[in-house]
Design a protein around this nucleic acid. Structure first.
Lengths: 110, 110
DNA sequence: TCTTATGCATAATTCTCTTATGTATTGATC
DNA sequence: GATCAATACATAAGAGAATTATGCATAAGA
């Protein structure tokens, strides 16, 4: 697991991008997908994940659909057009941040 | 200026690396150097800078020397051997974080 | 039967930073 | 010679985003 400090501020970007790339997903599924993509290095905690999803929904960037699987509730999230519009900017912003930090830390792009 | 959220958790690494690369520096000088290296994109605020420097000093990673310039006080910071040992790890950790995030966001290294 | 995995959610706390405030010197402009 | 911007330090109040802890519940495997 990474130093959690560095992860701050990246959660929204991760959620939007993963939902854009993978279509309809539910919370737990997102944690597993991020774990897989990050090779086990990013483990989203529920206390961060659910409030973040709720916030993105409240902002109109995600929309939800609750489905009953047997006796179990699942809440599926889909990115909205507004979310799709935003995700590119967020990713670009992150890449720009990396470029700037690389200059400050005097390191070559990985 | 970058989204300040992304900057969280990187301040200590920035301070240690800049002090390692530039030798003895004082607070205001550090803000100017970081501004220059980042092409004006990272503007360290005093409210973040000074507490961070004090903390690094308390941890034995930096040492200080107060000098009177005319009637003006300047506090010079120098990285200690312990700080020098740590800075490489911090930078590596940041680069590893970038690599992981690039995988999650499915972007090529910049 | 018991533990692990699945699945959602919220509250208390912690941490880091921003914003605001305070004090003071120096240099440039009017 | 007055005023503003830059230099130079510092701390306190508040905000924001995460961690940790807790709660509830079903399903699957040992």
């Amino acid at each position: 697991m990474h130093s959690p400090e560095l992860l701050k501020g990246t959660l929204q970007t991760i959620l939007l991008k993963v939902l854009k790339d993978n279509g309809r997903m539910y919370g737990y599924e997102i944690t597993q997908r991020v774990k897989e993509l990050s090779d086990g290095r990013i483990l989203l905690t529920e206390g961060a994940l659910y409030p973040a999803l709720h916030k993105l929904e409240a902002e109109g960037l995600l929309q939800t659909e609750t489905v009953l699987m047997g006796k179990r509730v699942r809440k599926y999230y889909t990115i909205t057009p507004a979310g799709t519009n935003l995700v590119g900017d967020r990713v670009s912003e992150f890449m720009d941040f990396i470029k700037t930090m690389s200059a400050v830390l005097q390191v070559k792009y990985i």
